[in-house]
Design a protein around this nucleic acid. Structure first.
Lengths: 218, 218
DNA sequence: TGTACATCAGTGAACGCGCGTTCACTGATGTAC
DNA sequence: TGTACATCAGTGAACGCGCGTTCACTGATGTAC
């Protein structure tokens, strides 16, 4: 029943965005609006459940894509993960907007949305770690030096075992890869590519290959 | 008066996001809600005006930052433009969300939002062209080959004189730069950096320098 | 097998509020003669 | 200088609708004896 409510609420994201109406959801369920309160204490709790589900779904998709190919084909794994994330986003644009789009005014995501949110990034981190191991210390190439302030953040991130064991420079590059991937997706999904990029599959694939080459994921 | 309405409406973006209420705006103006209709034929027209203003304001900020430094300091110009865009976004997060965030459900931006939207990208294009000229054909480095489908899009983009005169490979890299910049900003503004990156000025500066080096804007 | 009772999913009415948009209007201002 | 008129910014009431949340309730189901 909780699942049924969420399924219908997800459908309402398409028409109402994050302002989805509890009454409209109840109406579609063939219930009276107050009945929903037996399952969710408030509209915001329902929204939170949808956010958690979306992060989890995307994380699962990324994990599955990563696990599908051979471990040592790093470029293949990266392209598979990036492509799977993009496919999910294109299939579920409103859920993507819910988690990576503008914050909902008046809504503050509670702390229990954080763990599901890191699932996807953990996949990228594992990939990064494997890439570093494969190159076995080939150096970080040129580029500007890492400022101390940034180093500090990187060390804190690396305190989580899922993100540990990656040299600072590689982790910094990984973060750039992460923003590039989602920057690309947000532009595509939020309309910035309209009248600009039409061959989006090819464009995305090309840019992800380029980004991988730059980051040494080749 | 139109300006006054827009100013108050902008303030309401903070609390209501894109669902700003015409009645609330009128209330703050000390007017009755129907009076606003003398100036804007509908709520969506007001929203459109805000969108156009936001694109224009950001475009102006980018143009000013670009014009401030010496022409041949390409890295300096890039960092100035990127920094100015970021500053504007941090100062006007709700306007940023309006133009670069999730699309507003039920609202389709009309065609006259397009020209102001391209102002900012035109600044980046000019920078790119100058960079290509300065290197005077130093080649595009390695990286994966440009697929024909992507080339097609690039040629269409280059048909606009503001984006012309840039080799395909450089233009493709410029698009990556563009997505990297706004991907970074969206992550910062939409909360993905919470508990991840705390030294955001330094992180942004570092990533923009790295991206510039990769794109040959050094 | 049959009765008494507890559980609890869902009801329906109500509270108090908000919204966008329309329409006939008022009344101050400024113009024309 | 003074009157008649047009303009038009802003009013106020109304239409028809929506919302989240509360609360006492019904009535079917399942359990215990």
């Amino acid at each position: 029943m909780i699942d049924e409510i969420k399924a219908i609420a997800r459908r309402h994201l398409a028409t109402d965005g994050a302002n989805l109406s509890l009454r409209a959801v109840a109406r579609d369920l063939g219930m009276v609006s107050s009945a929903v309160y037996r399952y969710f204490p408030s509209r915001d709790h329902l929204l939170t459940a949808l956010i958690i589900d979306a992060y989890d779904a995307l994380g699962a998709v990324a994990e599955r894509a990563d696990a599908a190919g051979p471990r040592d084909d790093l470029l293949g794994r990266w392209l598979a993960v990036a492509g799977a994330i993009r496919s999910w986003a294109l299939d579920n644009p409103h859920e993507y907007a819910l988690i990576y789009g503008s914050p909902v005014p008046g809504y503050a995501a509670p702390a229990d949305t954080v763990p599901p949110a890191t699932r996807t990034t953990a996949v990228l981190a594992a990939l990064l770690r494997d890439a570093v191991a494969a190159r076995s210390g080939s150096g970080d190439g040129g580029g500007p030096p890492l400022p101390a302030a940034v180093r500090e953040d990187l060390r804190r991130i690396a305190a989580d075992p899922r993100f540990g064991g990656i040299p600072d420079a590689a982790l910094a590059r990984g973060l750039a890869l992460w923003t590039e991937l989602f920057g690309m997706l947000s532009f595509e999904l939020f309309g910035q590519f309209n009248n600009v990029i039409e061959h989006r599959d090819a464009f995305f694939d090309f840019q992800m290959r380029t980004a991988a080459a730059v980051a040494g994921l080749g």
